[in-house]
């Protein structure tokens, strides 16, 4: 019994940060119709920046809570700026080209950011463990967990809810949804699509970077981080359906559970499992589990 509970809890912890990353990816795809290969790099960027900030704060012997807050704020600021800059300065030039071309553009961004992080932070693992002790250890149904891990679950639930609420219950959200569903129509109704694009992309980057910052205290940052993360978040959004918020949640939980289960049952089989699920979904329900429209090809 405890064994399953462990898997479920571990799975949810994994799912919580994966969900935040995937949310950004699915939002960017929904609005801009770009499958962003560089999304994992923004995650890594967030994690690295967080590590720097946390280390700086710790060096001034300020408490870890200050480090935690400082890292979130600075990551949010930098990520939004990077997102806006990239969208206005680069992606904009390629709008209207084939979707595969845009995929390649983001692949180029991925390559560039890969080396930029290496140039800034080096190739050796770096850590930012101070905030990890912030919430102590918690006991849950006889299992001991690091509090920080468990706190991630409500945080991502709140972020998920906020986005759902923002999209469905606010004017800005409705405009974004209008662009997602029918761009031409929303242009004719006076929506400034350019702005929606810029904001949506920046927001996608922000989500990825925040997830990176939130996980930074748990992991070691080193090259290869971004390609591992993008591969997981691809699987999530494809399983859930590109462009779907609910899909990202379900996909994240599935992938999180699959990871946790394979760690406990079949170590090292996680990528295999996850991608098997993804390939199966693509084969039998190419629009993902959460999409209804099917108008495509013959």
């Amino acid at each position: 019994m405890n064994f399953f509970l462990t898997i479920i809890l571990d799975g949810l912890i994994q799912a919580s940060w994966l969900f935040i990353v995937a949310l950004g990816l699915t939002l960017v795809f929904g609005v801009l119709k770009i499958l962003n290969i560089a999304h994992g790099s923004f995650y890594a960027l967030g994690a690295y920046i967080a590590a720097t900030v946390v280390t700086m704060v710790a060096a001034r012997s300020l408490p870890p809570s200050v480090g935690f807050v400082a890292m979130l704020i600075s990551v949010a600021l930098i990520a939004s700026a990077v997102g806006l800059l990239l969208e206005r300065g680069l992606l904009k030039m390629f709008y209207g080209r084939d979707e595969v071309v845009l995929l390649l553009v983001t692949y180029a961004v991925f390559l560039i950011l890969e080396d930029v992080t290496k140039l800034i932070w080096g190739v050796n693992p770096i850590y930012a463990t101070q905030p990890y002790e912030l919430f102590g250890n918690l006991e849950f149904a006889g299992l001991y967990y690091v509090g920080y891990d468990l706190v991630l679950i409500p945080i991502s639930a709140v972020i998920g809810f906020a986005i759902w609420f923002g999209l469905n219950r606010t004017v800005i959200g409705k405009i974004v949804l209008a662009v997602i569903h029918n761009e031409e129509m929303s242009v004719s109704m006076g929506v400034r699509v350019n702005r929606v694009y810029a904001v949506a992309f920046a927001f996608g980057v922000l989500l990825a970077a925040l997830a990176g910052a939130l996980t930074a205290p748990k992991i070691s940052m080193q090259p290869g981080l971004s390609s591992d993360v993008i591969i997981l978040s691809f699987a999530i959004v494809v399983i859930g359906g590109l462009g779907s918020v609910e899909g990202a949640a379900v996909g994240a939980i599935l992938v999180g559970l699959a990871r946790a289960a394979s760690v406990h049952l079949m170590p090292q089989a996680e990528l295999f499992m996850i991608y098997l699920i993804m390939a199966a979904v693509l084969m039998f329900r190419p629009e993902g589990l959460f999409k209804r429209e099917t108008a495509r090809r013959i």
Binding site: L35, D98, E99, V100, L103, I231, F234, A235, V238, A269, E270, L271, F272, M273, I274, Y275, L276, M278, A279, L282, M283, P286
Partner: peptide, 17 residues
């Protein structure tokens, strides 16, 4: 389109895994 790209990527990652 991207579905083709994603599927080929997924299959190679299954093999990798």
């Amino acid at each position: 389109g991207i579905f083709f790209g994603m599927l080929t990527l997924a299959l190679s990652m299954v093999f990798y895994g």
